[in-house]
Amino acid sequence: MNVLADLRAGERRLTKRMASWDSPWARRVLPAVEEAVEHTKLWCAAALALGTLGGWRGRKAAGAGLAGMAIAETISNAVVKPLSDRRRPPKEWFQDQDVQDRPDSSSFPSGHTAAAVGFTAAIAPVWPWVGAVCAVPAVAVAAQRVHSGAHYPSDVVTGVVVGLAAAGLVRAAPRLLLHLR
């Protein structure tokens, strides 16, 4: 049991360190990232741009990304989150005034991170350089979720795992459907 206690203590230290990260970049960029990904706006806009401007490959990538995002959000928010009752990090650890606007739902796992990774990882096999471009805001989302006080790092890591699993399901779906015939 000491291992679990040590892991929890380490996660609390890391969360407090992220909360105290006070750089001009973090103050400027991370709130904008949060606004852009709220209600999946950024990912839907990216899918629209890909589908409109990217030809057949863009449409395929957009469809894969939206499917990955939808599956990740469903797994995260409708399956895993209701099974967990993890409280969000204490508000006292954070200087940001926006910490007051956190949702009341369980912090485990990070649905925003799951959606970002699900979208990005589903696009990457279809159009690798677009997946690489999408990875930049996906990483920023993960950092923002801890920095803002919405999640612990393990919530974010679990969101990454959920997103990768969702993208894997999107990639495997055509093969699975062929086997069902």
Rank of each mutant, 00 (worst) to 15 (best):
E34Y: 12
E34T: 15
A36P: 03
A36I: 04
A36F: 06
E38H: 15
E38C: 13
H39F: 13
H39Q: 15
T40R: 10
K41W: 15
K41V: 14
L42Q: 02
W43G: 01
W43C: 04
C44A: 15
C44E: 13
C44V: 15
A45W: 12
L48E: 08
A49K: 10
G51Q: 05
L53I: 08
L53C: 13
L53F: 12
L53H: 10
G54A: 07
G54W: 00
G55M: 03
W56G: 14
R57S: 12
G58P: 05
R59N: 08
R59G: 10
K60V: 11
K60S: 15
A62K: 02
A62M: 03
G63C: 05
G63D: 05
G63S: 08
A64R: 04
A64M: 06
G65I: 01
L66R: 01
L66K: 05
L66W: 03
L66T: 07
L66N: 05
A67K: 06
A67V: 06
G68S: 03
M69G: 07
A70E: 09
A70P: 07
I71Q: 00
I71G: 01
A72Q: 06
A72P: 01
E73N: 12
T74M: 12
S76Q: 02
S76K: 02
N77Q: 15
N77P: 11
A78P: 10
V79K: 08
V79P: 09
V79D: 10
V80C: 07
V80W: 04
V80Y: 09
V80S: 08
V80N: 06
K81T: 05
K81G: 07
K81N: 08
K81L: 09
K81F: 07
P82W: 01
P82I: 08
L83C: 11
L83Q: 11
S84I: 15
S84A: 15
D85G: 15
R86F: 09
R86H: 11
R86Q: 10
R87K: 14
P89V: 06
P89L: 05
P89E: 04
P90T: 06
P90M: 03
P90I: 07
P90S: 05
K91D: 13
K91W: 11
E92K: 12
E92Y: 09
W93T: 07
F94K: 07
F94Y: 11
Q95P: 13
Q95T: 15
Q95L: 15
Q95F: 14
D96R: 14
Q97C: 13
Q97F: 12
Q97D: 14
D98L: 13
D98S: 13
V99H: 07
V99F: 04
V99Y: 02
Q100C: 11
R102L: 14
P103T: 05
P103K: 01
D104G: 14
S105I: 03
S105K: 02
S106N: 09
S106V: 09
S106E: 09
S107N: 06
F108H: 06
P109A: 11
P109L: 06
S110P: 05
S110R: 03
G111P: 04
G111F: 01
H112K: 07
H112A: 08
H112W: 04
H112T: 03
T113Y: 00
T113L: 05
T113P: 01
A114K: 00
A114W: 00
A114Q: 02
A115F: 01
A116S: 07
A116T: 04
V117P: 00
V117N: 00
G118D: 03
G118F: 03
F119Q: 02
F119H: 02
T120P: 06
